[in-house]
Nucleic acid binder design. Sequence first.
DNA 1: ATAGCGATGAGCT
DNA 2: GCTCATCGCTATA
Length: 200
Amino acid sequence: MHVPKPFPTAFYQRSDVTAIAKELLGATLFTQVGDHLTGGKIVETEAYSEREKACHAHLGKKTGRTRIFFEPGGVAYVYLCYGIHHLFNVITHEADQGDAVLIRAIEPITGIDIMQKRRAMSHTDKRLTGGPGRLSQALGIDKRLYGASMQGPDVWIEPPQNISDPLTIVSGPRIGIDYAGEDKDLPWRYWLKGNRWVSR
DNA sequence: ATAGCGATGAGCT
DNA sequence: GCTCATCGCTATA
């Protein structure tokens, strides 16, 4: 039985969402859904802030979908994209500050057989968990996890175990946000250099 | 009530 | 490279 050792809530409630997005690289995202433990190393993230136009909660926009942005950081934000894909984010910052980090890719580690079943795949390659829609399907994430605590028991993230392991982080513009005007060029996508599981 | 569309991915050329 | 599936959310009326 795996005992969760999640980042504390204070980790998520800090004000610098880009710092959190970078620090989540190398950490391990776990879910326990349908009595199955699955997880993998986070290798790609994106930061979103209400100060810029790509964020669903831009300028504090509060709707049925975005209400979770205004809870204190440390809860999950899951939404349906293109009518098909569930995308997984972690809400950050203090209450009434609408920031979030999108998890875009993981390297599969725990429960690979379960992930393959959920993805209808018989082998393991980048298509298993490389991409925000793919990793959500592999981990059993859907809107039932909207608002879930990042302290578990359904979903949580554990800090990197080998902190002496040097991580080379690179950054670039975020994917799929052409609607965001000048903010589409902010280099708020982060990934581990050369990692095989990065979405693109 | 309803039109428009999206933080993607699969399949095909 | 290109097309398009598919539906909840949002804005507008």
